[in-house]
Amino acid sequence: MNRYVLKFRKEGYMRYISHLDLLRLFKRSFSRIGVRLRHSEGFNPHPKMSFVQPLSLGYISKGEYLEFETVHPQDVASMQVRLNAALPEGISVVAIRTEAGKKALSARVACASYTVQFLDGDGGEAFDAGRLCAAIDGFLQQKEILREKKQKTGKFVTQDIRPMIYALRENSQENGSVSLTMEVSAGSNCNLNPEVLLTELFSYAGLSYPRESLRICRDEMYLQPADGSVKIPII
């Protein structure tokens, strides 16, 4: 079994390409560098390749992960160099390692960190940044943060997102604009969309949510070991 996991960045205009576009891009890039992916069996074989966690259209990322299996064993260092030469600007592979664990990473990922920047000026909506930052402590001290979540069936259920927030803080910025860092649940079992957190935070602070002026970057994804004590980045 030649299983690998690859860490890549998605930046610049590439943040506007969708999950499916990105899958096709990697599939073709592997083909260009002559790496044959292993295919599933059956009537409609598809390559064994998947993203650990989908990224919303419009987000940039410094820590995306792709798991894949190849027909032949590969030298990871050389594969990284060749892939980077075959990928368009804005998508770059930062590391590849072999993956021994049996369970798919998408089932083992537990947490993701994000940085949120608020743009002012062109396209940005002005808001009281001081008031937002002052609200963070109080927001986190709440025992529960309830919200109405629409299910696939169309019904609404009440969900408490407080346990899904591991960290939330403001970053000091040299140019005076605000940015936040957060660590939240991620993965197929329990996942918190950063925009859900932000909506709740703005509402707690009594501010209207400036959806158009956000720039969100996923910084890293973490696995949680069995004891739950430390977060470790996938790579």
Binding site: G12, Y13, M14, Y16, I17, S18, D21, L57, G58, A86, L87, P88, E89, G90, D122, G123, G124, E212
Partner: peptide
């Protein structure tokens, strides 16, 4: 007007924004 800045502020409002970005291989 800076095309890049304006574009970034409106691309998320439209369907299939990748139609408008360029940057394809070759």
């Amino acid at each position: 007007m800076n095309v890049n800045e304006t574009l970034n502020s409106l691309l998320l409002r439209v369907e299939k924004p990748a139609r408008y970005i360029g940057g394809e291989l070759y």
